[in-house]
Simulated assay, not measured.
Amino acid sequence: MAVEVLVLREAAAGEKRVAATPETVKKLLAAGARVQVEPGAGLAAGITDQAYLDAGAQAAGAAARAAAELVLCVQPPPAEAIAGLRQGATLVGVLQPQADEARAAALQARGIRAFPLERLPRTTRAQAMDVLSSQAGMAGYKAVLIAAQLAPRFFPMLTTAAGTIRPSKVLIVGAGVAGLQAIATARRLGAQVEGFDVRPETREQIESLGGKFLDLGVSAAGEGGYARQLTDEERAEQQRRLADHLKGIDVVVCTAAVPGRPAPKIVTAAMVAGMKPGSVIVDLAAETGGNCEATRPGETVEQGGVTVAGPLNLASMGAVHASEMYARNVYNFVALFLKDGALAFDWNDELLAKTAWPAAPEVAAAEAG
Rank of each mutant, 00 (worst) to 15 (best):
P77K: 06
T24I: 00
T164S: 06
L6H: 13
A286P: 03
Q135E: 09
K169Y: 10
A270W: 04
E299C: 06
K265D: 03
V330I: 10
A356R: 13
P152M: 07
M271T: 03
L120P: 11
E207I: 10
R65N: 05
E69A: 12
A13I: 08
V74A: 13
G225P: 08
V25Y: 09
G290V: 01
A359N: 14
E324T: 07
S208C: 13
R199Y: 13
S323L: 03
F345I: 07
N291H: 02
Q303N: 11
G260I: 06
F196E: 02
S134A: 08
L171G: 04
G179K: 11
L43M: 14
E324Y: 08
A41G: 05
F196K: 04
P121V: 02
D215N: 04
M129P: 01
A263M: 02
T202S: 05
K16G: 00
G248S: 14
Q75W: 05
T202W: 02
A220E: 07
A66T: 08
A365W: 00
V3D: 05
A104T: 06
T268I: 10
K265R: 04
V35H: 01
G260P: 06
T255V: 02
Q303I: 15
I249T: 15
K354D: 15
A62V: 10
C292M: 02
E324N: 13
R199Q: 15
N332T: 02
S208K: 14
G298V: 09
V272L: 01
D340V: 12
D244E: 13
P152E: 12
A66W: 08
E201H: 10
H245G: 02
E237P: 03
Q205N: 11
M317G: 12
A151R: 14
G88A: 07
R235M: 10
S323E: 09
G61A: 05
A62L: 11
N332Q: 03
A59H: 02
A59G: 03
V301R: 04
S134E: 00
V251L: 01
M1P: 15
G318N: 13
A335H: 04
A148D: 00
